[in-house]
Nucleic acid binder design. Structure first.
Length: 492
RNA sequence: CGGGGUGUAGCGUAGCCCGGUAUCGCGCCACGUUUGGGACGUGGAGGCCGUCAGUUCGAAUCUGGCCACCCCGACCA
């Protein structure tokens, strides 16, 4: 296999696609718009799932599973939600095939097997879940319901990209039901914090927390909170969303509960999700022209040990020390791979593990055996140093922590450098074209202005940042008064 | 879905205009020598030329449909 990667500077998209395929993360499948997530890529997704799942459980949520199919009548119940997703749904209309009488060995859809009611392959599960919750909720004593599901969903996208936008993708979707509006809003905000915590502290990707404008809001939500991250090419990526659904779904599915003072009230709802798109964010945030760069906390192998030797005897000698080091590191909870394959030479292995983003590489040769040292190489900085074997476990443990922190700092500095305040629309366009990144600008608060700006520049309002300080100014587009700056960018 | 491009061995390609069963490199297999940044030698295997149909004695090559991917739009987590 050719391991030559397109350089980021030459063609950023091509670099991304090359990297995903060559680092063995995922591949295109025989199915339009659908990818195969390969074992190496899936191992990273599993690490993300593990960390997120623990965070969900620590905040009181439980996992459950709901059907892949949603009867059309349920799907259309919440009007805005249905309308928002209608144009990208896969629909099951039949339940049987039969052999084609005119074409031997081929199958056709059996026209006799048409479903009475079409089934929608879920693009999101609010409908089926709220239909189910109707049966679970009678009294305030049944609330809150704090449920998450790990699932696949299908959205028939016109143009797809590995991990960033695929027709089928994996995600988790939390769906909670609450007695009061305040409690539901608190839940929405809490899950946004969980996402921000995960993306920043595990993925080492800095995010801006904010609220979507009405235009960008989830179909069926009263408010959509989000975290937005900036990729190396200056484009924004929505990394996670948490929706306050108000009583929209409760009303659509008639989910009421009886209060302590015996009154009927509609239930308040939230939903929140992150998907395999996070893999794309991870890849695009840290990787370089040599390949993937993984933050230690998500790497399935944190340290790889490569022996350098002459002959079987040489390998045996090096292996004794290598295995000792491996054990010491494992005792610290570090995941280690000792690659003693004789079928590849050291240089080949170095390049391979760089492509795959293994955070730390240890090389041990006979020269080291004599000196009681090893060579330690960092993937993120591509630097190497010779260190004593004595105390190597502590050194590596600290190094992994340092790499994790350093990746975040580097990404944070980049995001800050690519965040620009502008005062005029000329400046706005100039920054977009020449620098790109996030733009903080005043906006008059109207959908019309937002759409005009989008038409003219392809930039959208990513969010109204939560930590905004009120500041009076004038809208860059309309010149009308504004009370705060909002975050614009071209986005994935 | 509209415009443009591409599709030949696992990967990258030559051949296509001017029709006669496919070139080269990397990778793969065997053996030997090697092993501190993608080793070298010798021998070998691997292809219904994206797919379906048409033209033709004969199609990778000509014509049409379809599929997939890439780029630009529209759409979008």
């Amino acid at each position: 296999m050719s391991k030559e990667l397109t350089k980021r500077g030459e063609d950023y998209s091509k670099w991304y696609n090359d990297l995903v395929v060559k680092a063995d993360l995922a591949d295109h499948s025989a199915v339009r718009g659908c990818m195969v997530i390969k074992p190496y890529g899936y191992s990273i997704w599993e690490n993300m799932q593990k960390a997120l799942d623990k965070m969900f459980k620590d905040t009181g949520h439980q996992n459950a599973y709901f059907p892949l199919f949603i009867p059309k009548s349920l799907f259309e119940a919440e009007e805005k939600n249905a309308e928002g997703f209608a144009k990208e749904c896969a629909i099951v209309t039949h339940y049987r095939l039969k052999t084609d009488p005119n074409n031997k060995g081929k199958l056709i859809v059996d026209p006799e097997a048409k479903l009475e009611e079409e089934l929608i392959v879920r693009p999101t599960s609010e409908a089926i879940i709220w239909n189910t919750y109707k049966g679970w909720i009678e009294s305030y004593r049944d609330l809150p319901i704090l449920v998450n599901q790990w699932a696949n969903v299908v959205r028939w996208e016109m143009r797809t990209r590995l991990f960033l936008r695929t027709a089928e993708f994996l995600w988790q979707e939390g769906h909670t039901a609450h007695a009061t509006k305040d409690e539901a809003i608190a839940e929405t905000r809490q899950m946004l914090e969980v996402y921000a915590d995960f993306v920043e502290n595990w993925m080492a990707v800095p995010v801006v927390k904010g609220v979507k404008t009405a235009n960008e809001r989830f179909a069926g939500a009263d408010d959509t909170y989000c975290i937005e991250a900036l990729m190396q090419d200056g484009k924004a990526l929505q990394a996670g969303t948490s929706h306050f659904l108000g009583q929209n779904f409760a009303k659509a599915f008639d989910v009421k509960y009886v209060t302590k003072d015996n009154k009927q009230e509609y239930v308040w709802a939230t939903s929140w999700g992150v998907s395999t798109r996070l893999m794309g964010a991870l890849i695009m945030s840290h990787s370089d022209d040599n390949g993937l760069v993984l933050p230690p906390k998500l790497a399935s192998t944190q340290v790889v040990i490569v022996p350098i030797y002459k002959g079987d005897e040489g390998l045996a000698k090096v292996s004794i020390v290598a295995n000792e080091i491996k054990k010491k590191l494992q005792a610290k909870g570090i995941s280690v791979k000792y690659d003693d394959r004789d079928s590849q030479r050291p240089g080949w292995k170095f390049a391979e593990y760089e492509l795959k983003g293994i955070p730390v590489r240890i090389a041990i040769g006979e020269r080291d055996l004599a000196n009681g040292t090893v060579e330690v190489a960092r993937r993120d900085t591509l630097t190497k140093e010779t260190v004593a074997i004595e105390g190597i476990d502590n050194l590596i443990e600290n190094l992994l922590t340092e790499i994790q922190a350093s990746l975040f700092e580097k990404a944070k500095a980049r995001t800050e450098n690519l965040t620009t305040k502008v005062e005029t629309f000329d400046e706005f366009k100039k920054v977009l074209d020449e620098k790109s990144g996030f733009i903080l600008a005043h906006w008059d608060g109207t959908s019309e202005t937002e759409e005009k700006i989008k038409e003219e520049t392809k930039a959208t309002i990513r969010c109204i940042p939560l930590n905004n300080t009120p500041e009076s100014g004038v809208c860059v587009y309309s010149g009308k008064p504004s009370t705060q700056r909002v975050l614009f960018a071209r986005a994935y």
